[in-house]
């Protein structure tokens, strides 16, 4: 009898927990749509872009793997105070990023962040990349490959170095999931079949891609 009651309460606890956990992303999804986010960001994978024109028609980055790409605390904070990530306006090589992304109140931001963090990709293996300043990664990023030609990165004494056409990699340490960086390089077709960044898979070895991912994941 006692055992039965115990079982019942454990089951009840389990159900209330799972219902609660399932309800939150659903609320976040409603808020995502009611705030008009869907008009610029798609959230259902797989990647839809097949041509350059498809990519250029988009008004904002795809978010269908946001939960694998971002770190939750960064995402929640950014939605409340969105600072430019790309130096240039989306899909432009001319205009500066206007820095006018819609802002959310704290409560909405955390619910939407919870929804976005539930959107994950099976192609990101967890626990592979540890952020680390390493000489090999540095050599690839700055000398062997043109990464710094298109991406901003932290130089000495807080100086911002690098190119403009890619998203800034400053604060990658807070913003990006290290394992996603590696997965992004390893499976270019999965996440961004059409992009201005060259495909490095097949050019860099997996070991080199790991080193450079760990190096980028450490950018403050």
């Amino acid at each position: 009898m006692k055992l039965y009651a115990l079982l019942l309460s454990v089951t009840a606890l389990f159900f209330s927990y799972s219902v609660f956990a399932a309800a939150a992303p659903a609320d976040g999804e409603k808020l995502f749509n009611s705030n008009g986010c869907q008009s610029c960001h798609y959230t259902a994978g797989p990647a839809k872009e097949k041509t350059i024109a498809d990519q250029l028609a988009k008004k904002g980055p795809e978010l269908w793997y946001a939960g694998s790409k971002f770190q939750a605390p960064w995402l929640t904070a950014w939605l409340q105070d969105p600072q430019p990530i790309r130096p240039l306006a989306y899909n432009s090589l001319v205009d500066k990023n206007p820095g006018n992304h819609s802002k959310l109140a704290a409560a909405d931001a955390s619910q939407i962040a919870e929804f976005l963090m539930s959107l994950t990709s099976a192609d990101v293996e967890a626990g592979v990349i540890k952020p680390k300043k390493n000489p090999k990664g540095r050599l690839i990023f700055n000398k062997k490959m043109p990464c710094g030609g298109c991406h901003q990165y932290p130089g000495r004494k807080g100086k911002i170095m690098g190119g403009m056409s890619g998203p800034s990699l400053l604060h990658a340490k807070q913003r990006l999931n290290p394992d996603w960086i590696y997965a992004y390089m390893l499976n270019p077709k999965t996440f961004k079949p059409i992009k201005m960044m060259p495909v490095f898979a097949g050019i860099l070895s997996e070991k080199d891609m790991k080193s450079v991912s760990a190096y980028v994941a450490n950018f403050d």
């Binding site: 030609g149 690098g162 190119g163």
Partner: peptide, 8 residues
């Protein structure tokens, strides 16, 4: 091009 900054 736009990437050709002083660091390039």
């Amino acid at each position: 091009g736009v990437n050709v900054t002083e660091d390039f």
